[in-house]
């Protein structure tokens, strides 16, 4: 279109507020610009649910690792190179036919970042945060997950200090699969408890 004067840059109000915060904090020496870039790089590219899927696949394949994960999840997960932030501890909870685990943060958005990356939008939404505790079966139904009536659902409320990783049940008919192939069956939602691992043969 044209040769009007719309050649200048545009900064929307939210972006400008964040620039203002950053300017102050960097000018006062409270945070370093390089540290901010490193954090963004990590969360955009390096951490995500593939980390957690590797933890789960190893637990399925290696009983010693599973036992370690059950006793000291922080250390077992760190042994694979996935370390959380200082002061954050991990606990792994294992689904069984009798008990299904579901993770929520009723306060805000505490999440096992080192193994799952950043939480999906619904995890941070008020309805999920309140209803997961009051009506977990109803929440699971909305995710398309209908559990047997005699399966108990246990809800874990994350905190700033303690985060949970759900270890879903290993799908039937996967005895022949290597860890790497098993990891492909482990979805993000299955590690939050709003889904199950993908049945063998259904993986994309």
């Amino acid at each position: 279109m044209g040769h009007d004067h719309e050649h200048d840059n545009h900064l929307d109000p939210m972006a400008a507020r964040v620039k203002a915060l950053e300017t102050i904090l960097v000018e006062k020496g409270l945070v370093e610009a390089a540290a901010i870039d490193a954090i963004i790089e990590t969360y955009e590219n390096k951490v995500g649910p593939r980390n957690g899927a590797r933890v789960v696949a190893k637990a399925w394949s290696d009983p010693d690792f599973a036992a370690w994960l059950a006793n000291d999840a922080t250390a077992a997960i760190a042994s694979l190179g996935f370390t959380g932030r200082q002061g954050e501890h991990m606990r792994a909870v294992f689904n069984t036919p009798e008990q299904h685990h579901l993770v929520v943060c009723t306060l805000c958005s505490c999440y096992p970042w080192s193994v799952l990356g950043l939480p999906p939008v619904w995890y941070k939404s008020p309805p999920y945060r309140s209803r997961a505790v009051i009506d977990p079966r109803g929440v699971l139904a909305e995710f398309g997950l209908e559990l047997p009536a005699d399966t108990q659902i246990r809800v874990w409320d994350s905190t700033a200090e303690l985060r949970y990783l759900v270890v879903p049940m290993r799908p039937a008919g996967t005895g022949h699969l290597e860890e790497e192939a098993l990891a492909d069956l482990v979805t993000r939602d299955s590690m939050i408890g709003t889904g199950l691992a993908i049945a063998a043969g259904e993986a994309a």
Partner: peptide, 25 residues
């Protein structure tokens, strides 16, 4: 800007200026 804001919050915690508990509350 969402990534920037998120990173600022973590950087402040890393620097010990706010605690993770204080932030989440």
């Amino acid at each position: 800007w969402q990534a920037q804001a998120f990173a600022l919050a973590l950087a402040l915690q890393d620097a010990g200026i706010i605690s993770p508990k204080e932030w989440s509350e």
